[in-house]
Write a protein that binds this DNA or RNA. Structure first.
Lengths: 348, 348
DNA sequence: CCGTCACCCTACATCGTTGTAGAGAGCGGA
DNA sequence: TCCGCTCTCTACAACGATGTAGGGTGACGG
C-alpha cells in the first residue's frame, strides 16, 4: 500500500495509541496551533513509536493537489536539457515539489500529446519546453486549464507564464566579446535557414546587431547552417566553412554542442584556437569548463530560469483563480570568457 | 483539483448523464465484461460528452498503488545516466508506469536518504543505482519493504533483484578487440587504485584476463588512474601516460567519457588514432557515434538493463507477497567497432 | 411451473486524509 | 451570575474511485 507495505500504519492507529481523535493527529501533523503541549507530545510519541508517515495519496485526494509538477523536455541526452532538468528538480525540491519528467523527443505530435495526456492528472502544473512546435501551434495551448510555465522561444502568447533568455542580447554580447578580441571575420555555426522564430533566428539576429554596432559587414557566406544542434553537425558545418576558405578568425557556435564540434574540427585541421580562430558557444554546459581549450560561452542563467519557472508555477498552483495577467520573465545572462577566446594564459 | 481544474467531471456526473449507477461507469472504465452493449455505449457516450478522465489519485488511494516508480541515479548530467534514465522512462511507459527521477549526486548520504525518504510513498517501487555506497553499506538495505531493483556493482545481496552488466567479460572482450587489431601495449584510463569492487575494478580485471589469455604481460605502468569518470580526467590521465613514454599502441577507456577525453588528448599531441594508438571506450553513449574518429566502445545493453529492471520491479509490485528468491540478471553486451580501432575505411 | 444459473446492474462501505461545525472547559469583564 | 471569548478537541462528512454483496432479469432444464 502506497510505499508502506505490510504495516500500513494510519492516523487511526496513531490516534488509538495516543488516546486522541484521528483529527487531532491530523492537526498535529499539519502544525495546527491550538493543541495542548502535552497532547502534542503524546501524539508525537505515538507517531515515533509506530513509525507513522502520512499517506500522501489520501492527502492529495482530500486536498486536490499532488505536489508533483511535470517537466516536458525534448531529450535528457541533450546536455542542455539534462542540466535544465537537474536545475528544475533542485528548484522544485527546495519548494517541496517533486518533478516528473516527460520526454518529447522534440517531436511535434508528442509535444502536443503531453498537454492533454493522462500524466497531467498526476501533476499540479507543467513546465513546458517545446522544440517541435512553431508559432502556428499557439492554439494548441487554448483551453489549457492547469498552471503552466513556458520555456524557450518557439511559442509566445499562450495562457501561461513564460520564462525566456535574452537570446538576442546574449548573442550580441557573445559576438561583441569576439569583436573585442580584435576578430573581424566571425562565422556562425548552427543557423536555421528561413526560420524567423526560435533560438537560432534570435541568436543570428543578435550576431548581426553586434556587427552593425561595430560597423562590420554582415557576410551571408559566414553563416553556417546546421539543423540539429549536435556536436557532429557542428563539426561538419565547421569543415564546410573551413573548406570555403573565408578568412575566418572567429566562430560563434549557437550552442555549446555546436561550438565543441567546431572546436574539434578546428583541431583536426590544425587550426590554433584561439591563435588563429577564437570560438565561443552558448549555454555554458558543464563540459565547456573541461574541453581543451576550455570554451568561452554564454551563461544563460539556467538556475535562474529554473527557479523562476518553478516560482511562477507554484504561484499559479496556489492561487488558481487569481486571473492575474500572464508574466514574461527574461533571465539574465553573462559571458563566460575562457581559453577559446582569451588563450590559456588569461583563462583557467 | 488534480490536473483538471474547473470542470472536475467525476464518475457521478457521467453516471447521472448516462442514467446508470456510478459503479457501472467504473465497470465500463475498467473493462468489466458483464455489461450490456447498449449500456456500455451510453456510458461511453457520456464519457465522451463530458470529457471525463479517471481521477488517478482516487483510484490510487482505493487500489493502494500509484503507478509511479522511482529511479535514483547519481546525476542526469552524466551522459550514461541521462541515457539510462531515458531508457527506463521508455520501458516504464510501455508498461503503463511513470518514472520519478531522484538525483543523488553519487553522495553516500543522499543515496541512503533516498531509501527512506518521503518520496518512497509516492512510488510503488524503486530502481536504485548507487555510486557512493560500498559493500559495507549493504545493511542500509535491510528492512526495505518495497519492491526494489538494484543496478550497478556497488552493492550485492540486498533484498532486491539485481541487474548488472558483464563488466569483466565485456572489458575482456574490449581488450581482446584491441589485441585482435595487433595492439600489444594497451593502456587503461580510469582505474581506481585500491578498490576491489565497482565497475573500475571489474573492468580492469577483465582487461588483465584478456592480456593473460593472449600471453601478454600486465604492466602496472599502463594502468592510468582517474577518480572521476569525466572527459577532463580522461584527457589528463592520457597526457600523463603519454608523458611517461610507454610505447602505448592502444587505450581502453573504462567509460566513454574517459575515452573521449583520451581521444582529445591524443589529438592534441598529434597522435594518429587509430594509426598510432587505437582507442576503445565503454557504455556506447550517443556521442561516441559522432566523435571523430567515431569511438569504438562496448554496448552494455542499456535498453535491456532498463527493460529487465522495470519488468522485475513490476513483477514484485504485482505480487508483493510472493517471496520468490531475489534474481540477479546479467545483461548482454556487444562490442561496437568504429573508426577509433578500425580506421575510417572500415568503419562508418 | 419452478428452481437454477448466467448475466447485468446497483447500494453501500471503504481507502486515509482533511474541512467544517460545534462542543466543552476555563477565564475575564459587565 | 451570565455572557462572550479563547483554547482544545471531537464527530462527521467529504475527496473520487473500487470491492463486496446481493437484487433483479430472462433462459433453460427437469
Amino acid at each position: 500500500m502506497n510505499g508502506r507495505r505490510g504495516g500500513a500504519v494510519t492516523m487511526h492507529d496513531v490516534a488509538a495509541r495516543a488516546g486522541v481523535s484521528i483529527k487531532t493527529v491530523s492537526n498535529v501533523v499539519n502544525g495546527y496551533p491550538y493543541i495542548r503541549q502535552s497532547t502534542r507530545e503524546k501524539v508525537e510519541q505515538a507517531i515515533a513509536d509506530l513509525g507513522y508517515q502520512v499517506n500522501v495519496t489520501a492527502r492529495n485526494l482530500r486536498r486536490g493537489r499532488t505536489g508533483l509538477i511535470g517537466l516536458a523536455v525534448p531529450e535528457l541526452s541533450l546536455p542542455y536539457f539534462a542540466e535544465l532538468a537537474d536545475s528544475v528538480i533542485r528548484a522544485a525540491e527546495a519548494r517541496g515539489l517533486t518533478v516528473l519528467i516527460e520526454q518529447t523527443g522534440a517531436v511535434r505530435e508528442r509535444e502536443i500529446e503531453v498537454l492533454r495526456g493522462a500524466r497531467r492528472q498526476f501533476t499540479d502544473g507543467l513546465v513546458y519546453s517545446p522544440l517541435g512546435l512553431g508559432p502556428d501551434d499557439v492554439h494548441e495551448l487554448d483551453g489549457i486549464d492547469y498552471p503552466m510555465v513556458l520555456l524557450g522561444e518557439r511559442i509566445f502568447g499562450g495562457p501561461a507564464d513564460h520564462v525566456t533568455m535574452s537570446n538576442v542580447e546574449a548573442a550580441k554580447a557573445a559576438t561583441q566579446h569576439l569583436i573585442d578580441q580584435g576578430r573581424r571575420r566571425i562565422a556562425v555555426v548552427g543557423a536555421h535557414a528561413g526560420e524567423t522564430v526560435g533560438s537560432a533566428a534570435l541568436r543570428v539576429q543578435g550576431y548581426a546587431a553586434a556587427l552593425e554596432d561595430n560597423g562590420l559587414p554582415f557576410d551571408p557566406a559566414l553563416i553556417g547552417e546546421a539543423g540539429l544542434w549536435h556536436r557532429a553537425t557542428g563539426a561538419e558545418t565547421m569543415w564546410r566553412l573551413l573548406d570555403a576558405d573565408l578568412g575566418i578568425d572567429a566562430v560563434f557556435g549557437l550552442n555549446d554542442a555546436l561550438a565543441l564540434g567546431a572546436l574539434h574540427a578546428l583541431h583536426q585541421r590544425r587550426v590554433d584556437v584561439p591563435g588563429q580562430v577564437a570560438v565561443i558557444g552558448f549555454d555554458d554546459i558543464e563540459e565547456t569548463a573541461y574541453s581543451s581549450p576550455t570554451l568561452s560561452t554564454v551563461h544563460p542563467g539556467r538556475e535562474e530560469i529554473a527557479s523562476t519557472a518553478v516560482d511562477l508555477l507554484l504561484a499559479r498552483i496556489e492561487a488558481p483563480d487569481a486571473d492575474r495577467p500572464y508574466r514574461q520573465v527574461v533571465a539574465d545572462f553573462s559571458i563566460v570568457a575562457r581559453a577559446s577566446t582569451l588563450g590559456e594564459h588569461a583563462a583557467g
